[in-house]
Design a protein around this nucleic acid. Structure first.
Length: 598
RNA sequence: GGGGACGUAGUUCAGCUGGUUAGAACGCAUGCCUGUCACGCAUGAGGUCGCGGGUUCGAGCCCCGUCGUCCCCGCCA
């Protein structure tokens, strides 16, 4: 096919912008052919660009050449149209599209490029398999939905820059080729050609660089930055993802919260959501007890309560800890559903599950024979159960806390099971409102988490998080109870950010490393440059990182972050479009001093 | 590393208890059509049933293996 040249023609309007007020104007439009309707002696083309669609009319009596060319046009051809905007007669107006009151009468049609038949229809909204979409991502991205998401992402990034710059934050880039720090996630490694046998690592986050920028006197820093983690993927996890990374010197926690809350407020204004401020603050302990989660979804009630267990029941059942949840008006729940909850409780790690249905007169429960109705009444009373309610009980048995290890992991299991039951109930009872946006700060995380497999403590946030000052003395004697100055930002049950006030004193940093089982030698080997930097006048500092992909996905109403990333990877970390990762030439390996084994 | 779901035309899917020549819709091609806008009508092309092996007289269907995609657990300081 003979193609036309664009020449010096300049687009005068976008396809989605024409209105009756443009009638009579000569215009030049350019875009992709969304659809061709050939009625013989009249051919309609729907011309599309990112703003929308305009109907182009090709009639032989206006231009025989344009009409003739339109016969060859197919879907996704790139064309330019020179013509006149005309108002449609009332009976031909299309109210379904923004430009439906006008059309462009083609005086001249330029076929700028042809296109293969698209591998899938562009207007099918989510019916094409993701595999096919990702393979032909350039076609997929033409869809209005993805255009919207990525353009919103762009405007959101602009808002971030404007907001943070307005608060005195400076955007500074940090290296991608950096040093491996084996703590935390698996690193992506990049072999050095110049230094054979040595490797760079792609950053899991710019954590140490941003702290060093504080030491360097930059006072307030931010970056919209790519991070890399070589771990298994999920719907909300990609091997490379973006963070809004923020750090400030001489931090007041409330000031940081305020800056972030304001930012969130501005971001959600972009999608016409007014957020409630200030955000709720919830200590970690309360979150775990009441919601069974460190990222509670507070769009619905269903709060657990830790009960004081009547001794006779505790004795009989060997209960070590007992939680209860009042489910209003659900006394009618079926045995089958309750059995499912019991099964969930078991697999989620609780030792014991039971329930009571509150009637007008009496309680109905498998427990009543065992405990007697008065004991049951007292338990139900502790959660203020009323007639018609269902009360769920969840417990930990004695044997589990007496195995010598710290009792916390066991309690944690109970809490986590309670959290899963809570979420399952919310789904089953359809309590999740997609129009509600509940932000909250979870604060006062434990500093350390005991890892039974490795038989050591691990940092819950990261090893540069400051313990609360009043807990400094417990570092060596009771690390499990040391609280961190760490906080997470949570939205509707998703963690969208996390940060902390950092350690700015070398002595405290060394003590924390020691709790983590890092000898001074090991610490020096891994973080020597950072420990050195700490010695040269480190101001108190702290910050936060927001999960940008997750945040944008939530703003777009998407549950999968691939929908807000232009070129995402599959669950096995493959880019289906460019087929990465790939093998490389033997010469490339030779240069790097690498040899493949097996 | 583990569990679950899926894999059939370009796309989305159907395909019974293993039985003749594997179907539908959309898309595509060709022709007709002057007001369509998911145009319509007619005709037609299009299949490595993911791949390899096995069972069977016979496999899209059963078995084993393998690859790929999605979801979840572990993992993700």
């Amino acid at each position: 096919m003979k193609l036309d040249l664009l020449g010096s023609r300049r687009r005068t309007h976008y396809c989605g912008h024409l209105r009756p007020s443009h009638a009579g104007q000569k215009v030049f439009l350019a875009g992709w052919v969304a659809r061709r309707r050939d009625l013989g002696s009249i051919i309609f083309l729907d011309l599309r660009d990112h703003t929308g669609v305009t109907q182009v009319v090709c009639r032989p009596e206006i231009s025989a050449e344009a009409h003739h060319k339109a016969e060859d046009v197919r879907a996704e051809f790139v064309v330019g149209v020179e013509g006149e905007v005309v108002a449609r007669t009332p009976d031909t107006v299309n109210p379904q599209i923004a430009t439906g009151e006008v059309e462009v009468l083609a005086h001249r049609l330029l076929i700028l490029n042809e296109a293969k038949t698209p591998p899938f229809p562009l207007d099918d909204e989510g019916r094409t398999s993701e595999e096919t979409r990702l393979r032909y991502r350039y076609v997929d991205l033409r869809r209005a939905r993805l255009q919207h998401h990525l353009r919103l992402r762009h405007r959101a990034a602009m808002a971030v820059r404007e907001h943070l710059a307005g608060h005195g934050f400076v955007e500074i880039e940090t290296p991608f080729l950096t040093r491996s720090t084996p703590e935390g996630a698996r690193d992506y490694l990049v072999p050095s050609r110049v230094h054979r046998g040595h490797f760079y690592a792609l950053p899991q986050s710019p954590q140490l660089f941003k702290q060093i920028l504080m030491i360097a006197g930059f006072d307030r820093y931010f970056q919209i930055v790519r991070c890399f983690r070589d771990e298994d993927l999920r719907a909300d996890r990609q091997p490379e993802f973006t963070q809004i990374d923020i750090e400030m010197a001489f931090p007041i926690r409330e000031e940081l919260f305020n800056i972030v809350e304001e930012l969130i407020e501005k971001l959600f204004a972009l999608v016409e959501v007014r957020v409630q401020r200030p955000f709720l603050r919830l200590p970690y302990g309360a979150a775990m007890e009441r919601y069974g989660s460190d990222k509670p979804d507070t769009r619905f009630g269903l709060e657990w309560k830790l009960l004081t267990c009547p001794p006779e029941l505790a004795e009989k059942l060997q209960l070590a800890a007992l939680k209860a949840l009042r489910v209003p008006k659900e006394a009618g729940m079926s045995r089958a559903q309750l059995d499912k909850l019991q099964e969930l409780a078991r697999t989620a790690g609780a030792d014991w599950f039971s329930y009571a249905k509150v009637g007008q007169e009496a309680l109905q429960s498998p427990l009543s024979k065992l405990s007697g109705d008065d004991v049951l009444q007292r338990l139900a009373g502790q959660v203020e159960a009323r007639a018609g309610d269902l009360v769920l009980f969840l417990a930990l048995k004695n044997s589990d806390t007496s195995d010598g290890g710290p009792p916390l992991p066991a309690l944690r299991r109970l809490d986590e099971a309670s959290g899963e039951i809570r979420l399952e109930l919310a789904r089953k009872l359809e309590l999740l409102n997609s129009k509600t946006w509940n932000f909250l700060w979870v604060t006062d995380f434990p500093m350390f988490e005991y890892d039974p497999a490795e038989k050591r403590f691990a940092a819950m946030h990261h090893p540069f998080t400051s313990p609360r000052e009043e807990d400094f003395d417990k570092l060596e004697f009771d690390p499990a109870t040391v609280r961190a100055r760490a906080y997470d930002l949570v939205l509707n049950g998703s963690e969208i950010g996390g940060g902390s006030i950092r350690i700015h004193r070398g002595d405290i940093q060394q003590r924390v490393f020691r709790v983590l089982g890092l000898t001074p030698e090991k610490a020096r080997e891994r973080f020597g440059f950072f420990l050195d930097a700490l010695e040269y006048g480190t101001p108190p500092h702290g910050g936060i990182a927001l999960g940008w992909d997750r945040l944008i996905a939530l703003m777009c109403g998407e549950s999968n972050i691939r929908e807000v990333i232009a070129f995402p990877k599959t669950a096995s970390a493959v880019d289906l479009m460019c087929d990465a990762p790939s093998s490389v030439e033997p010469e490339q390996l030779r240069e790097l001093g690498l040899r493949l084994v097996e």
